[in-house]
Every structure is written in C-alpha cells, then in structure tokens.
Design a protein around this nucleic acid. Sequence first.
DNA 1: TGAATACGTTATGTATACATTACCAGGGGA
DNA 2: TCCCCTGGTAATGTATACATAACGTATTCA
Lengths: 250, 250
Amino acid sequence: MAEREVDRSVSQTVKAQLALRDQILSGSLRPGERISELQAVETTGASRTPVRMALVRLEEEGLLEAIPSGGFMVKAFSERDISDSIELRGTLEGLAARFAAERGVSARELEPLKECLAAIDELLRQVPISVDAFSSYVTLNARFHALLTELSRSPPLIRQIDRASALPFASPSGFVMAQSALPEAQQILIIGQEHHRVVIDAIENREGTRAEAVMREHARLAVRNLRLALRNRTHLDLLPALALIKTATD
Amino acid sequence: MAEREVDRSVSQTVKAQLALRDQILSGSLRPGERISELQAVETTGASRTPVRMALVRLEEEGLLEAIPSGGFMVKAFSERDISDSIELRGTLEGLAARFAAERGVSARELEPLKECLAAIDELLRQVPISVDAFSSYVTLNARFHALLTELSRSPPLIRQIDRASALPFASPSGFVMAQSALPEAQQILIIGQEHHRVVIDAIENREGTRAEAVMREHARLAVRNLRLALRNRTHLDLLPALALIKTATD
DNA sequence: TGAATACGTTATGTATACATTACCAGGGGA
DNA sequence: TCCCCTGGTAATGTATACATAACGTATTCA
C-alpha cells in the first residue's frame, strides 16, 4: 500500500471521473488535447486503474475520444455538433412527453412539476433578472426537465436522455449564464417557461402529439439561443460548459 | 509475465468485450445473473484489468447494470423496455432522415442506399422466403439503416443512434429470424421495404417532415412485429437477441 | 544540409499482488 | 426457535510492477 492519502468516502473511480470531468468542462484541458494517464493520476489522486476506468466512462459519455494509437483526447465539438445535440435531446424529451401524455399521469405526479413551474415564475417576476436568480433558474430548469423525463416511465428512454445530456450543452449553467449578459435573456426565458406550461397542460389532457411538439419547439428555442450567444463572442468566457467547442481558428 | 497464451492481434480489452457480449446475447448468462470477474477472466482468457474495462464498456452500452454493492449483473428488460427502445431508435432515425432531407444529399450519396434497396427487393421476390434469404435480409437491412444514419452527417446523432442500437432489439438477427417462422413475415418485410423506398424519395425531394414520419412509422411496424413474435412463444427460442427479456415468471 | 535510422525515453496495455468490503455460515444467547 | 453476532471466505476495489509499443531526438551517412 502506498503512503498516498486516500479518501475512503467515495470510490476512487468516481472521484477520478468527477475530477476529470471538471477539468474538461472547466477548460483546464483544451479540446483536442491528449489526456495523460500519469498526469491524471497526479491531479486526481487516484491510481492508474481507477483513472483508466474513469477515462473509459468519460469516453462512453462522449467527452473523450479514444486515440487509435492509444490513450484518450478531449473531444472537440463544432457549433453544429452542439446545436444538433440540443435538437437531439429535445427530440428525446418530446418522446418522453408523448409517452407521459399517452400513458397517463396522475395529478400527484404532476405536482412537483407544477411547483417547479411556479418557482420559476417567481424568479422571472424580477426585471431585469439578477445573476443569482439566473443561477437558481438553471437549477430549477434542470429539475423540471428531469422530472418531465421521469414521467415517461420508460427506463430506456430516461437512460438515453441522460446520455444525451452528458454532452456539454446539457450542462446548462454556462449556457444560460451567458444569456444573462444578453438583453434578450428575459424574453427567451419567458418563452421557455410558456413551453413548460404548455407541455404540462398537454400531458394533463393526454394530448401526446401536442406535448411532443412543444418540447421540440423548446429545443429549437434553445438552438436559437445558442446561436445568439455565439454571435456575442464577448460573452463566450462565461461559457465554461462550452469549453469544448472548436474555435474557428483551431 | 504469465504463461497464459495471448492473442496479440487484437487488444485484450476488445477481445474480452466481444466474448462477454456474445455470452450475454447468446443467453449463456441469464438476465439478472451476477457476472463474476474471475469467471469472466477464465472464459475470456484476458486478465482482470481488460475484463474490468470491458465490463465498464458493456455497462455503458446498456447490457450490464452496476450492482451498488459492487460488480455487475446482466440487465433484464421487460417487453415494454424493448418496444420503447425500438420506438426510441425509430425517433432518432427519424431525426436523421429529417436532417438528411433538410440539409440535402447528393445523388452519389444516395447510390449505396438504392443498391441496398434493390438487393432487398431481389430477396423478397422469393415466396415464401428462405431462411438463408432471411439471413441476407438482416444484413442488408442493418446496412440500409446504417447508411441512412450516416446521411444525417451529424456525428452526435450517429453516435446516439449507435448507442440506442446496442440494446438487444437492435441486434436484429434473432428478432427477424423469429419472424421467418411466422406466416405474416413476408408481408411485414414488404411493408418495411416500402418504408425504405418512401424515405429515400422524401430525402431526394427534401421533404424533411415526410422522411421523419415514415421512419417513425417504420419503428411502429417493428413494435407490432415484436408483439407478434412474443405472442408466438413457440418461436421464442429463435430469439437469441432477446435472451435478455424478462420472462413473466421472473 | 537534409533525411533516415537507431536508440532512448515515455506512455499505454496488461498482469498480478494487496487491501477491503460484502456475503454467508455457524454458533451462542435470549 | 429465532435472532444476532462473529468469524471466515470469496469477490471486488485499488495499487503497482512489468511488457510493449510509440514518439522524439540525436547521430550518421549520403
């Protein structure tokens, strides 16, 4: 056994995975950069075996790419990749909303969704919205989407949506935070909230097609949102979650 | 170094992954069964490290499930899980078809699709279709779907579809083979082939919505197909790919 | 001076030893 | 008789040693 100090509260594999994901999403490791096992061992404090397990998991998660000659590198995404991923996720969420509507959901199950909705309403009452409120919004919005996904009661679909959310765009903090610097921010959030309201209504009334349609529209809004943020390159430094995006010059 | 005989042509990790997947899909390992590392080491011929990497990959692939207390077990799926997965995949393929149609595809790119289509037509001319022809059909059908997916030119989407295809239903051999024992088989394949034809036409004419709709209908056909096969329990032994399905008594 | 080869260094792939935890069986006490 | 506790065994989690392959550098020859 080494004299290495070991934190036994969580498994070394999980610790390494979290640490590496942080490094990637925070931009410490740039897209395209090769990720060295030894280096990862030093920064994470775990030994090579758990580090390698973490690397495999992150590869499957889509953040890393295997290098044919061996090892892994941080994956680089184009703007199109990101917007496609958003649309992809919206499509899956649309299916989840359809399943929820068609299979029926009890009033009790909708309760947490409505609470979430009301909490967001409360936040949006501020004009202009503060950075703190934005931060809360991000959390609540993520919660809303997670709850909606759960309503589908379809483990394979839920799993797939989780997978699709692992891509950087789905780490919503940076994405939405960047919007806070934009004057259009409030409008966008208000429209998004309207989508949330409609999808609940559609599910309550068991209108599967309508529920699905609004979630897809919701994703298209997010894509427009992304484009807007990327046009305002001055705010790109607020986009830690988009650290993986390929810059034009790369 | 051990005296173990090592095949250096492929990596031990890949070898172990393939071997274990075979064991799972062939039913050697029953759903819900715990998978022992030591046992896997013996059956695959690799050592524990590559076996563990393979297990992690298979977990991410959806065939295994991590046991909280440690280790992995073969995942068990309900009929609903399988049909949801088929619909899920169809939804993603629908998006791929839409992307292809909206973004435009050259005649040269459609060529291989059309060749595939023609080859399947040729096979279906036989009445009744032979088991060999069925086998060829399975290959060609998989090729058609893979080519269609590629047309989206969206790496994240392609990746996600691959993921969704890793689930057992997507290993089409057993699934379609089972149909060969059913009198409705030929009809189903002919309808499916019509869908293939329509999606190509829609893509050529840049009708994204129509292209998407037909792929989703295609998936619904496959779901009906699955239900049919499961009603005919006598043929279930022809379903190696569905070895993972939970039986009612489990 | 440039290119090619050889050698050395470094990193990954693999194997195994060690540590720890979970599970099971047996025994003892209430 | 049932429950709990304790000990042992077996499996997983972790660490590291070893083998091999890749990459870079330096040297030599053309």
